[in-house]
Write a protein that binds this DNA or RNA. Structure first.
Lengths: 205, 205
DNA sequence: TGACCGAGTTTCGCATACAATGTCCGGATG
DNA sequence: CATCCGGACATTGTATGCGAAACTCGGTCA
């Protein structure tokens, strides 16, 4: 795996973990030293993160960790409300038994993580679940658009994970049932309900 | 404006114009020589274009202009059908008189371009129109997601522009009327109709 | 005849070096 | 005392060099 891609993953992880707070100035020299690489992979990684929306890139002034205001969070949920039900609908049509099994395996891991209260793992599993649904839709372009959105959602998810997690995974189960039954309309409905609930649970909505 | 950004625009233009055919291997040295810059801005530009979906980036093998198969085009229209009506609905709620004036100015320029048969300008104006609608929605996250999609749409648009253009701009006018009237529901409907018509007009659909 | 393989070439990935620009602070000036 | 200006510093932008991986293509062997 190219160094550049590892740098992308690492910086994104630092942002999602909150170790790089919103507004932080990403200084290339400093990151290069911290990660033990030269500035070149760092710079390319920053372009990717900029395209994903994790950092803002004012011209000639470097990169800053993006901020997520309350209004921007609502904007985010509006878009999610358009794409998630679409993904669920298509997944219900396209997912085979093996696809459903993959989703159920994630549900099982989430159950364990819930029991032991591993919030960090739950955030990861949440992203993994939604990403998997999009992948099962069979729509490659949707995957391209939605994967960065899911990652961004993980950022928000962490803020409400403790309160929301149990309900969230109940809703996930309902969605998997609809996909398993191949009921596209129901899957769409369950997905919409899930996103609406997530929006309602978000602080300062 | 940094060289890197000019390189992004230039390579994207070459791809949209068809001067860089799908599947073409983007060799960094060659591009650097052609554009008269070093490889470094080229490499960063390629990362951006990769995130936008214009080039594919197999590990350790450079960059290739993305291909758009018929099935991928249908995938694209599915996503567009989810996002465009949302943008139209929000724009109808949020756009003021000056926003409507901007749209009408684009309509007028398109009318002129249609008369003189300037297909290249029409493709540009089509992108400009849809981008503007998304911007008028006031949803910044939607803009981030949709702008690359519109650019990608321009790629497809060129293939059917000669046949579709007159109908397309009639539909645009209907959408502007709905936005001007502040009728969110009608704007959503008109937008959906427009995307469906574009999909139906696309070759080999 | 067809598949394999290895040396030469091409091309990428990463590091380093240099240039340009932006930032910030201290001092001069009204 | 506030403001404006200038220069040193910090940081980004661009170019170049080198090592490594991948591709090419001719030859060889089954």
């Amino acid at each position: 795996m190219p160094l550049r891609d590892m740098v992308v993953d690492e910086i994104r992880r630092l942002i999602l973990d909150g170790q790089l707070a919103p507004g932080t100035h990403l200084v290339e020299d400093r990151l290069a030293e911290q990660l033990g690489v030269s500035r070149n992979p760092i710079r390319e990684a920053i372009r990717v993160l900029g395209a994903e929306g994790f950092v803002t890139l004012p011209a000639r002034r470097g990169a800053f960790v993006a901020t997520l205001s309350a209004v921007e969070a609502q904007d985010f949920f509006d878009v999610r409300l358009a794409l998630e039900p679409l993904g669920a609908k298509l997944a219900a049509k396209a997912a085979g038994p093996e696809g459903v099994a993959q989703l159920e395996e994630i549900l099982e891991r989430a159950r364990v993580a819930t029991e032991i209260g591993d919030h960090s793992a739950l955030a990861e599993l949440n992203s993994e679940f939604h990403t998997r649904v999009f992948q099962l839709s069979g729509n490659e372009y949707l995957v391209c658009v939605a994967v960065p959105m899911v990652r961004r959602g993980q950022w928000l998810f962490r803020q409400s994970v403790a309160r929301r997690a149990p309900h969230s995974w109940t809703e996930h189960r309902a969605l998997v049932s609809a996909i398993e039954a191949g009921d596209a309309e129901l899957a769409e409905t369950e997905s919409r309900r899930h996103v609406l609930a997530a929006r309602a649970a978000f602080p300062r909505s």
